[in-house]
Amino acid sequence: MYSDKVLEHFRNPQNMGEIPNADGVGTVGNPVCGDLMTIYIKIKDNRIDDIKFKTFGCGAAIATSSMTTVLAKGKTIEEAMKITRKDVANQLGGLPPVKMHCSNLAAEGLHKAIEDYQKKVEKK
C-alpha cells in the first residue's frame, strides 16, 4: 500500500519535535478527522534555518510531515511557499489516492507557519 520511501520516513521521521522559541508555527488538520500536524520554523536571513514537526495521524501523515520538513529546510521563504502537497507526495514515491487529501497536509502547515512568521514581522 505504501512506497518504501513512505515507510522509511514513517520508521525514521526527520526533524520530529518542537522548536521552543519558533519564529512561526502552523497547525493544520483536526483530531476528529484523524490527522493533526504542527510545523515549527526558525528563520535566519530569510531562510528556513530550522524546522520541526509534530503529527497525530496515520503513516502517510507522519511521512508527509517528515518529507515536508526535509524539503523546506535551508530554503528561502519564497521557495518554501512554493512547496506543494504534490511535491511532497512525488518525493515520497507517490501516495495511495485516499491519502492524497486527508493525510497530505504538511505543506499547508508549512505555509501557515511562514504566514505566522510574516505576520509577526509586520507587527514589529
Binding site: 514513517f10 490527522d35 497525530f56 495521524g57 496515520c58 503513516g59 501523515a61
Partner: peptide, 9 residues
C-alpha cells in the same frame, strides 16, 4: 493521543 493505522504499521 495516537492513531490506529500508525500502530498497525
Amino acid at each position: 493521543y495516537i492513531e490506529g493505522e500508525s500502530l498497525i504499521l
